[in-house]
Structures are given as C-alpha cells and as structure tokens.
Design a protein around this nucleic acid. Sequence first.
DNA 1: GGCTATTTTGAACCAGTCTTCAATATCGAA
DNA 2: TTCGATATTGAAGACTGGTTCAAAATAGCC
Lengths: 213, 213
Amino acid sequence: MAQHKRRVERKSDLVDAAWRAMLEHGATSVRLNQVAEQAGLTSGAIIYHYPDLQELLLDAHRAGMERFYEQRLRAVEGIASPARKLVVTIMSGLPTDSDDPDVRLLCELGGAAARNSVYALLLTSLYDRQVSLYQVILEAGAAQGVFALQDDSLAIGRNLVALEDAYGYRIMARHGAIDQEAAAGLILDYARIATGHRLPLLTPSPTTEDKEP
Amino acid sequence: MAQHKRRVERKSDLVDAAWRAMLEHGATSVRLNQVAEQAGLTSGAIIYHYPDLQELLLDAHRAGMERFYEQRLRAVEGIASPARKLVVTIMSGLPTDSDDPDVRLLCELGGAAARNSVYALLLTSLYDRQVSLYQVILEAGAAQGVFALQDDSLAIGRNLVALEDAYGYRIMARHGAIDQEAAAGLILDYARIATGHRLPLLTPSPTTEDKEP
DNA sequence: GGCTATTTTGAACCAGTCTTCAATATCGAA
DNA sequence: TTCGATATTGAAGACTGGTTCAAAATAGCC
C-alpha cells in the first residue's frame, strides 16, 4: 500500500513538473529532457513512470484545467447576489495579464486542438462546464427577478464564455488596448444588455467577507 | 529585370508551398523537408531563397491572413443594406467546418502568439482591422437610423470579432452542438440586442445578385 | 552554340532527442 | 541490518532534422 501511495505522489510530482516545463518551453514543443530537468530527474526516470510523454502532458493539461475551473468555482462561493456573482465570474475567467500561466496554456492548447482530438475534447468539455456555470447564475438571477434575460440562458452563457476565451487570446497576444479590465468592461457591456441589469463593476464585493467571522 | 521577376515568383511559390505544408503538418511543427516536398524541391533550394525558415512561415501566415481579410471584404461588396451586410460579415468570419484551412491556421497561430511576439502582432493587427470592418457597418446603420446601437460601435465591434474568434476555436475543436450555423445564430443573438435590429438570417441575399446583369 | 550567373541537388556533417538497458541507488519490510 | 523490490542513473545506439557546400543542372544572354 505504501509503495502505491508513493507511486501516486511521484506521478503527481511529474505532472507538476510537466506543467512547469510546458509553461517554460511551450505546451507542444516541450522536450522530455526539459520535463526531467523540472522534476530534478533524468529522462529515463520520467519514462519509467510515463512510458509515453504525451500521456504525461495530457495529465498535466487535465490537472491545469481542473485547477482553473475549481478556482472559478471558489471565486464566487459565498457570494449571494446573482449580479455580483456574474461580475466576479466574468473577472475570474480572464487572465490578469499576458503572463497568466493557466490561461496561457489553455490558449496554446486551443491552438493544438484543431489537430489533436483529445485536446479538442478536453477543451470542449471545459467550455461546456463553464457555460453551465453561467447558466446557473443567469437562471438564479432570472428566478429572483433581478435579471430580465434577453435570450435563453444557454445562448447567453455560450456567448459569455466565448467572449472570455477570445479576450484571453487578445490579452495573451498583448493587445495594446485590451487588458483584463478593458476585457471585463467589454464583456460586461454585453452582459448588461443580455440580463437587463446594471451589473456594477466596482470594488471587491463586501458580501464576500460575510462568511469569515 | 527578368531574373528579378522570376525570383519574386519563386518566392511566392514557396510561400504557397509553406502554407500548404503548415496546413498538413501544423503551423508550428512543420519541417523544412515538408515545405520542400510541397514545393517539389529539396531543402537546400528552400534555404537558398529563405535562409531562415521562420521568415518563410511568417510570409505564409501574412499572405494567408491577408487572403482571409480580403475575402471578407469581397463577401459584402455590393450589399447595400447595413443589416444584410452585418449578417454576411458575421457568416464570413466563421469557418464552414473544422477543416476550413484559413481559420485552422489562424487558430494555430493564436496558440503560438503567446510565445511569439511577431505572431502576436500579426493577429492583433488582424483583430483590429476586423473590428474596424464592423464599426463601419455599425456606424452606417446607425446613421441611416436602422440600427439603435446599445453601445459605442468600438465595443460592439470588438465583441463581435471576439465572438467570431471564439466560435472559430469551438468549431475547430468539433464541438458537437456548435457548427457554423449555430455559431452564427449565437452571434446574431448578440448582434440583435446590440443593434436593436431583427437581423434576419435567412437566405443568400437577393440584393447580392443585383450587380450581375 | 557557348558563356556566365543563377538555381538546385545530393551527400556529408552536426546537434538534439528519444529509446533502451545494464548497473547502481534507494526504499520498506522483516 | 539485510533482502528484495522499486526507482534512477548514465551511457550507447538509432533516428530526425538543420546546415553546409562542391558539383550538376538550368536559364538567360550574346
């Protein structure tokens, strides 16, 4: 049993190392040696655990995507108001800047997905889950009567995630006029007319602190 | 003079070959040999004209992007109605399916742009030009009183191009529910509330034929 | 047709990477 | 502490792909 646990831990170490290596050298062009170096091992050791490097990279991407998604969930937990929830969710989907590691890898993955059906599937699933995330918020707001949805929540959700994604790429490409704030502003422009709510951007919500004391 | 012309022609042949090779083997992972094969030459001949392969790939991307943009311009020329123009422009920005070559390479380029500042610049410039394209249509429609813009044309234009881009990625990744038509529908959902116009999707416009007889 | 400049080939060379595997080191249990 | 299993190294071999360059082919010109 103990050796099984160690095995799992080691694999997890390698996944982390692979993730860092991809970040440093590129999601697609990363080399086995570079992963090994990040892990503080030699290439043989990597192969011992992952005979196929692609498998390791895939696991690393999976883990990164999962982290990204969980992070978004955490960002809104404890927020009651649908409007605030929507604004925070929008912000949490955007990279802070062109160095944001999670979004960077997601973008590189997006570029590779046209050729790699596994990556494509992974990203498609992430997309759909994010859409659902928005749908829940939109429906809740509609049920409470604070949102007057101009379309079905599925359509609005899809457009919101699409906008996030696209501005993620813009920010990664260092568009001079579009940073996280500007992108959030643009997406909110859409969210406002789609929900019929003013959706104040403003200060980090005071309601978030509620759950702490 | 004649040899100069030949030189230019040959370079253009190589650019075409490089473009095809990228399409077949991937924008980033394409090999010198593969370009040579597409051109019906050996690698030495490619190097003779393009000592740096990156330069050739860059030219190929530039040409592809230019073609894509020109194609969009042509798609609306001769259409008078701003509403129709808007609808046609939206359609022309979306890949027909996951095999659409131009969009495929643009997506791969997007993935690479996070690491390659030249590609980033190229894509940023394309994005901005496409935004301008929309702005012109939006402003014309507003001036004619057929559009009631809910935001400044810059914001709407940016969002429209962002949506196109994002759905391009979804289509490339073979999202089961999002094909060209569905994507157009979603973007139009936004365009409708942003312009206050019904924007009928419908049939290939009859007004297009006007200029033929 | 012969001459020169340009273009292209083909082979040799080099660097980097993956793979394999015997030798070595480390771990955990008894 | 010792033993067997597990993990890791390091070096050798095979392969791929870029680079170089002398030699061959081709084109354009007189």
